[in-house]
């Protein structure tokens, strides 16, 4: 995660999170699949690490991650639906 800029780190979080979303669905119907369980564990660790880095350097991605100084910065743009300008 070192040396990633904000866009790269967000993209990394998107990729890892989607993989987690997909393996979650698979595990929902295959709860004993050891390969999938292992994949979930590995992805979860990657996501946790990336999320921690993102919150630390670039700000919160959800309302429970906000580290405010003396001004609330959660509901500030840009918002994800605005795309890149």
């Amino acid at each position: 995660m070192n040396n990633m800029n904000q866009k790269q780190l967000r993209n990394y979080i998107d990729v890892v999170s989607f993989a987690l979303d997909d393996v979650t669905l698979f595990l929902d119907t295959h709860p004993d699949n050891q390969d999938a369980l292992q994949m979930y564990a590995g992805l979860k660790e990657k996501r946790t690490q990336a999320m921690n880095d993102y919150v630390r350097f670039f700000g919160p991605l959800n309302r429970y991650q906000v580290n405010s100084g003396n001004k609330w910065a959660w509901n500030m743009g840009p918002w994800p639906w605005q795309g890149e300008v």
């Binding site: 309302r63 959660w74 509901n75 500030m76 743009g77 840009p78 918002w79």
Partner: peptide, 10 residues
């Protein structure tokens, strides 16, 4: 207004 967009989201 970004703050208002956030309030609507929350």
């Amino acid at each position: 207004n970004s703050r208002v967009a956030g309030i609507l989201t929350d």
